[in-house]
């Protein structure tokens, strides 16, 4: 539901980075999104088309890499996969776990076209 806000925030960052690198076009955007981030990758894809219109990233390919939910048990020390609504240790069943991955909401990487600089030799 809030994916459009997320996309706008994403594009603000992308435009800033592209500007800093003197890019003429953003070709590919890689996001890392975990199930516990509260953001739905499919909805991001839909919202992105709207949000990116007219920006330097209008034609960019948006790639969303999902992250697996994994927990580390503070009781038995085992790291195991978990379901988003059941973050218990798969080995001993303890609920005293720490999330290792699964709540990411990251702009991981950008690929851009950056023209070669033709700076005069000094």
């Amino acid at each position: 539901m809030h994916e459009l806000s997320i996309c706008q925030a994403l594009l603000d960052q992308v435009e800033g980075i592209a500007r800093n690198h003197g890019a003429t076009r953003v070709e590919r955007i890689l996001l890392k999104v975990g199930p516990l981030s509260g953001v739905e990758p499919v909805l991001i894809q839909h919202a992105y088309t709207l949000a990116a219109a007219g920006t330097i990233a209008e034609t960019a390919e948006l790639v969303i890499e999902t992250a697996e939910v994994r927990v580390h048990c503070t009781v038995c020390g085992v790291e195991s996969p978990a379901a988003p609504n059941r973050l218990l240790c798969a080995a001993c069943g303890s609920f005293q776990t720490r999330l290792v991955s699964g709540d990411e909401l990251l702009l991981a990487q950008l690929e851009m076209t950056i023209p070669d600089r033709t700076e005069p030799a000094s």
Binding site: I6, A9, L10, D12, Q13, I17, H21, A23, E27, R28, L31, V39, L105, L106, L107, A108, Q109, L110, E111, M112, T113, I114
Partner: peptide
């Protein structure tokens, strides 16, 4: 700042989308 196979500039960012 790396390069992809087809010569694009690849920048690793790793910033939270909600950083702002």
């Amino acid at each position: 700042l790396g390069r992809t196979e087809d010569g694009r500039a690849a920048v690793t960012v790793l910033t939270g989308l909600l950083a702002e």
